[in-house]
Design a binder for these strands. Structure first.
Lengths: 162, 162
DNA sequence: GGGCACATACTCGGATAGTTCCTGTCCGAGTCTTCTTGG
DNA sequence: CCAAGAAGACTCGGACAGGAACTATCCGAGTATGTGCCC
């Protein structure tokens, strides 16, 4: 069980997009260069965000992506689910139904006890990710990153933003 | 991000093994027949449990597997990690280091903020799985399963146990 | 000088190969059981 | 009747193919920009 690298890329890209002035867009090319990633493949992650309705897109020169959901409302879970899907990490195939001792059609009403436990853990994971918003991440980064580096980065992005 | 079906199989098998009298073994063949699973592939999951030190093995006729760790101490996390590995679900490739505005060798001391958040959610998932023991599962099943079915199942297992 | 039409270049989006990991299968080394044989 | 020995059958463990999913790449449809021309 391992999350695909697209999740990491999507989170970093959203952090960058959050620092964009209102109404401006940033292209896949700029985001790829900034993070040192393959442009063509990174676009897949951004497409996932677009299909999930988390970002807006614009075509043509000076086009690209921008956040559609405000950073103060956009949660980590939104981004993770946009890339990984909303499915649970544990799928129950109900193999208990093969128990040769069970009467036919038994144990079909409520789910398997093992699945319930696994799903509770899965939900705990989601609750934790739902509690963190991109705005919180920006605040954390603001405390960690020296002001000059922060400023230079903002300028770099602004120069590339259309 | 989806757990492999081996996790489900391993959990169900441990539940069955927990009902085994002390000193008795249950073979892969019996476990596979009980759950309606391919014997050869199920053995891989049991091998993982064996390599993790969770079960004991015995060869020859009337051989098989039995729990090595008491059901009251064996947690869901032990079993999940035995099959899936102990690695975190989120791997950080530190792509922030490619930021063209950062000075060389910067941000190498403590991990990326995004990774820290993802790892906290991962830890919440593990905490939840660590809190549930196989003995708890047996107690839950005891409340759900009718006594006659429970008895028949126990007899079936006992008849197959070596 | 201002407005309009056009060519241009850049964007996203989906369709297309390559590689890794999970799934499924097979066979061999080792051991416990059981049967046979001898005392 | 009991004990010892050997044959047999069953077990786990690791080595070997097949398929799905992730990774990586390419090209086309569409649009905003910038330029040149006309008024």
């Amino acid at each position: 069980m391992i999350l695909k690298s697209q999740v990491e890329w999507a989170l970093h890209c959203c952090a960058i997009l959050a620092g964009l002035p209102a109404g401006r867009y940033l292209s896949t090319k700029a985001l790829a260069e900034f993070h040192g990633l393959p442009k063509e493949y990174l676009s897949k992650a951004l497409q996932s965000l677009s299909q999930a309705g988390l970002v807006d897109t614009s075509l043509g020169p000076s086009g690209g992506y921008r956040l559609r959901v405000p950073a103060s409302e956009l949660t980590f879970l939104d981004i993770v689910e946009a890339v990984e899907g909303k499915g649970k990490s544990f799928v129950c195939n109900n193999i208990r139904a093969n128990n040769p001792c069970r009467p036919q059609g038994f144990c079909e009403s409520h789910p398997c006890a093992i699945a319930r436990i696994m799903w509770e853990a899965d939900e705990a994971w989601r609750v934790r990710l739902r509690a963190v918003r991109i705005a919180d991440l920006i605040a954390m980064l603001g405390e960690e990153i020296p002001p000059d580096v922060w400023k230079k980065t903002a300028d770099w992005v602004l120069k590339r933003a259309g």
